[in-house]
Write a protein that binds this DNA or RNA. Structure first.
Length: 441
RNA sequence: GGCGCAUUCGUCUAGGGGCCUAGGACACAGCCCUCUCAAGGCUGGUACACGGGUUCAAAUCCCGUAUGCGCUGCCA
């Protein structure tokens, strides 16, 4: 494996990082790390009107969140900079002049077009194989425009120029560029440059097979962070879309994937995005999260949901959140799951209330209340034995008592371990809530 | 329309002529476990797009058809 591999991710700042773009970045990064090569980040911001610094920042944030660090590019520097196309005017101008001097260009209504040599071009793609494109007919393949009348540059031209200038050896990009590649090859040839190796990866589609656009669920990387997904889970899931380690491993950390990732093993088939599976993988990673990180991310998730923690003792918050660890698939679910810890306005789940707040359950709950009030202490073990004592005395199964108690105290039919949650809440609050529930029968 | 790429369970995939009465995972259903819900364990159903070849033998190779996607921009 050669050591001078140079790959690049070249996003256009559109205000979000598309999941397809993220996977393209990921595969480039994996190839670089696998081969010991260099991962370059280049911002293709030639369209001045719709590029803002915020939009660029979103790309940086998303890549960093995923853990895809670049070796050359914005903030990192490198010998082939600048890495913003908006700052490379002189470079483009000189290549443009060369093309013009070579007689490859002609003006058309103020715009400049590249005169196709009209040949059959072979694209030798590492994933798709050898593909012939017959560009001989101007009818079906008009000469491409490379510069607009206002002087701004067209993607095809600057993309090729930068790949030459930045000495890119492997272009790994979405399959939507496969047909463009023949045209790019013409440009490389006219400029007397050796083209890179190409690898076109399949696209990521919506579950219904349609193209994913900004508004579609799961399309924007930012949405994963906001929903409280773990970056390592999202990254792992993205790896599994279009690539497989060939054995049945699915949950793999990045170091293992870096070792095993081979461009040649990438599929040619578009993949439908499955948020359920991504969430499942996230749940798997949630089990591995350290207590410290769990606490931190949980607080952030509550903050995003507008749950105020200010009025509660830090130990209370920590203990409350600890009862939720290992129970969540995504942090997004936390506010609904643990909201009862941080608000006394308990709203009873209507279906559960109808089932549990019944005439026969009222004396049972009342008995539980008395036992709780009489318990010598109120830790999980004491609460458990108190409740089990009532069950034994009344000749009912524990579950018969557990359900109405849980509903009375949390408002929900399910949640954290009942005994632990009661301990955290404390006797005073628990009795209060049971009293209130007794009035709701 | 033209050109290109693709086509294995609902979804992601394994498979590269005999090991395939097609394997794994998510999702789904049932059972077990259990203080709820998850988790975990067990069980179950569902797939080689279609039609022709080639071959003793095809999910695997070839050719058509269909369908999907991409490109066909002074978007990237």
């Amino acid at each position: 494996m050669q050591n001078n591999v140079r790959v690049r991710f070249a996003p256009s700042p559109t205000g979000y990082l598309h999941v397809g773009g993220a996977r393209t970045a990921l595969f480039n990064w994996l190839h670089a790390r696998h081969t010991g090569g260099t991962f370059v980040l280049r911002i293709e911001d030639t369209d001045k009107s719709r590029n803002t610094s915020e939009a660029v920042q979103v790309i940086f944030d998303s890549l960093q969140w995923l853990g895809l660090d670049w070796d050359e590019g914005p903030m990192k520097g490198g010998s082939a900079g600048p890495y913003f196309q908006s700052e490379r005017e002189a470079v483009y101008q000189s290549y443009f002049d060369r093309l013009k001097e070579g007689g490859h260009l002609f003006e058309d209504g103020g715009a400049w077009r590249f005169r196709s040599p009209r040949e059959v071009v072979v694209v030798d793609d590492e994933i798709c194989g050898k593909i012939e494109f017959d560009l001989r007919s101007p009818e079906t393949h008009p000469d491409m425009t490379i510069r607009r009348p206002d002087g701004s540059w067209i993607f095809h031209f600057v993309n090729v120029v930068d790949d030459i200038e930045m000495k890119i050896t492997n272009v790994i990009r979405g399959e939507d560029h496969l047909s463009n590649t023949a045209k790019h090859l013409e440009l490389f040839k006219a400029l007397g440059a050796e083209p890179p190796r190409y690898a076109h990866i399949p696209l990521i589609l919506n579950p219904d097979g349609t193209k994913m656009s900004k508004r579609d669920q799961g399309a924007s990387m930012t949405s994963y962070r906001e929903a409280g997904y773990l970056p390592e889970a999202v990254c792992n899931y993205l790896c599994l879309l279009g690539w497989s380690p060939k054995d049945d491993r699915e949950k793999m950390d990045m170091s293992e994937i870096v070792k095993r990732f081979e461009l040649a093993n990438v599929n040619r088939k578009n993949a439908a995005f499955d948020l359920d599976k991504c969430t499942w993988l996230n749940a798997e990673y949630m089990k591995d999260v350290s207590d410290e990180r769990f606490q931190e991310l949980a607080r952030a998730a509550l903050g995003r949901a507008g749950v105020k923690l200010d009025g509660y003792a830090p130990e209370y918050v920590t203990a409350a959140l600890a009862t939720c660890k290992g129970k969540l698939r995504v942090f997004h679910d936390l506010p609904a799951y643990a909201g009862f810890y941080f608000s006394d306005a308990i709203a009873y789940d209507p279906v559960a209330a109808e089932k549990q707040f019944t005439v026969e359950n009222r004396p049972r709950l009342a008995a539980v209340r008395s036992a709780f009030a009489a318990a010598s202490c109120f830790d999980a073990a004491a609460v458990e034995s108190a409740l089990k004592g009532v069950a034994a005395a009344m000749g009912v199964k524990v579950g018969v008592l557990v359900h109405p108690t849980r509903l009375a105290v949390t408002g929900a039919a399910s949640g954290p371990s009942l005994y632990h949650l009661l301990e955290v809440l404390g006797r005073e609050k628990v009795l209060e809530r049971i009293d209130r529930a007794l009035g709701a029968f």
